[in-house]
Design a protein around this nucleic acid. Structure first.
Length: 482
RNA sequence: GGCGGUAUCGUCUAGGGGACUAGGACACAGCCCUCUCAAGGCUGGAACACGGGUUCGAAUCCCGUUACCGCUACCA
């Protein structure tokens, strides 16, 4: 027996940026396709011309590209398939699965309000389905506008969801939904089903806000005589307050995290763990490992809360585990933004640059941290010491500090060899001679050497900087105190 | 209101009838390491929503309640 080909799709509507919930849906689809050697397709659902923008479409492409979630065939623009959607709807009408409805939007609105006022559940009452055929023909001939409604049959509609177990809806709770607007364009469920059939989608995997659309789509598949795909409904992602993630929660676009210095693999890793678990305590994973570990058995049903703190932690883990060479291209844009490198800077592929990244990466949680910490070790960047730091760390005890700086400069300048262990012995001896705690020597040195109170160990800093630069910076700082 | 879904530490989760004194991670607190900051190590507080069943035995299965979420458009 052969398994049907796995073909999945991510189908966002281009009405904003790519937000983290969408990204997670795309990720799961991508992971599933990779896992099973199938295709991951992208379809832009732009049938709502009023809300769709090219800018949003671009944002979706950019977001997916940044995350590394490439799609396998040409992008499908739903709007290009309007004709087929219309045909399918017509086919349904011809086959007796649908009927014309002449009720206007205003009338419907009135009836809905009326129902709400008397606390009744509103459901279309099928009055147009009871119209006499000659009356229908008369109205059509007279040019009366109409929509096409699907005639929901009796019975119950259910399916085995890959995330949930069996979900079922009594058809009496599903109203005769509109499939074609009066202007001949399709409504969501019609367009989606028509496209999914045409694209031979095998697994429809999306957010669980679509659960109540599923019975409608299943009914459409059946009326169209098409084979049903498998369905999977992923739980929503909420903000810290437990409410649906929205702008109120701060950053919700994947691009926001990109600009905050989050690595795409960390974003994917973090998102994957929202609604999926490998079934063990495994947390930090590469994309390859996730593909390997991904399984529908690990799919969770409960909505999860997006916690930016944990994302940052995870980002730090990824940064530390990547080599300087791997980090360089990922960090390039950030270094450019910090004014430390030019776009396509020749330093990017240089081993010395990679060594700098390796030198500081362990203490970073974001690429911004990386840029900040790497700065003092970039030979072409002039060291600047924040005046506030000069005040708080050097001018506290200017005479002694200047003395210590000068002495260490002399001492280091004449040191036999440039080894951290040797420096340590000499510097500690110096502190002892002057009767001060070692930290009293090291911290001013750190500020003098890096312009910061945070850096790798001071002897490693000296070693990385080299003797000449180190001595110069110590003397320069001392000069500030003269 | 109707329909659907969900329920384990503050958060992400492990758990699939006995291995649960409920495990890990983030966050938080303390300690260790230590020249700073991270990383790392150790320790601590912190959860099975509630009520009924089923069973010798329930976090795990069933029912109900509650809470939360989603859908309820000629939006997607």
């Amino acid at each position: 027996m052969t398994f049907p080909a796995v073909r999945v799709r991510f189908a966002p509507s281009p009405t904003g940026y790519l937000h983290v919930g969408g990204a997670r849906t795309a990720l799961f689809n991508w992971l599933y396709a990779r896992k099973h050697g199938g295709q991951f397709l992208l379809r832009i659902e732009d049938t709502d011309k009023a809300r769709s923008t090219d800018e949003s479409t671009r944002a979706i492409f950019d977001g997916l590209t940044w995350l590394g979630l490439g799609w396998d065939e040409d992008v499908v623009h739903q709007g290009a398939n309007l004709e087929r959607h219309g045909h399918d709807a017509q086919h349904l009408l011809d086959g007796g699965h649908a009927y014309r409805c002449f009720c206007t939007a205003d009338e419907l609105e009135q009836r809905r309000k009326h129902a709400a006022a008397s606390k009744d559940a509103f459901k279309y009452d099928r009055r147009c389905d009871r119209l006499d055929p000659t009356e229908v023909a008369r109205r059509v001939a007279a040019g009366a506008p109409f929509v096409i409604r699907f005639r929901v049959p009796e019975g119950i509609t259910s399916w085995d969801d890959m995330v949930h177990e069996s979900i079922s809806f009594p058809n009496k709770d599903v109203e005769d939904f509109v499939i074609l607007r009066s202007d001949g364009t399709p409504i969501y469920n019609m367009a989606v089903t028509s496209d999914d059939v045409a694209m031979r989608i095998s697994h429809v995997m999306r957010g669980d806000d679509h659960i109540s659309n599923t019975p409608k789509q299943i009914l459409l598949y059946r009326a169209l005589g098409a084979e049903l795909p498998r369905f999977a409904h992923f739980p929503m992602i909420h903000g810290l307050d437990g409410k649906k993630l929205s702008k109120r929660h701060g950053a919700t676009a994947v691009a926001d995290y990109q600009h905050m210095g989050i690595l795409p693999q960390a974003m994917n890793n973090f998102l994957a763990l929202l609604g999926w678990s490998p079934g063990s305590d495994r947390e930090v994973m590469t994309m390859e490992e996730m593909v390997w570990l991904f399984s529908q058995d690990g799919l969770l049903r409960k909505a999860s809360v997006f916690d930016p703190k944990k994302l940052e932690w995870m980002n730090g883990q990824h940064i530390s585990r990547l080599s300087g060479a791997e980090l360089a291209p990922l960090a390039a844009a950030t270094f450019v933004r910090f004014g430390l490198l030019a776009p396509d800077d020749p330093a990017l592929p240089e081993p010395w640059f990679h060594r700098v990244l390796d030198f500081v990466k362990e203490r970073c949680r974001t690429l911004d941290d990386l840029a900040r910490l790497a700065r003092p070790f970039l030979p072409h960047v002039k060291l600047e010491i924040d005046p506030a730091l000069v005040e708080s760390h050097l001018r506290k005890d200017p005479v002694l500090t200047r003395q210590l700086l000068l002495e260490s400069a002399d001492m280091l300048g004449g040191l036999d060899g440039w080894k951290p262990v040797v420096m340590e012995g000499a510097l500690r001896a110096l502190a002892e001679r002057r009767g001060v705690a070692a930290g009293k020597v090291f911290q001013p040195m750190r500020v003098a050497l890096t312009g910061s109170t945070v850096s790798p160990g001071i002897f490693d800093v000296l070693s990385q900087l080299g003797r000449d630069v180190s001595v110069t910076r110590l003397r320069d700082a001392a000069a500030l105190l003269a």
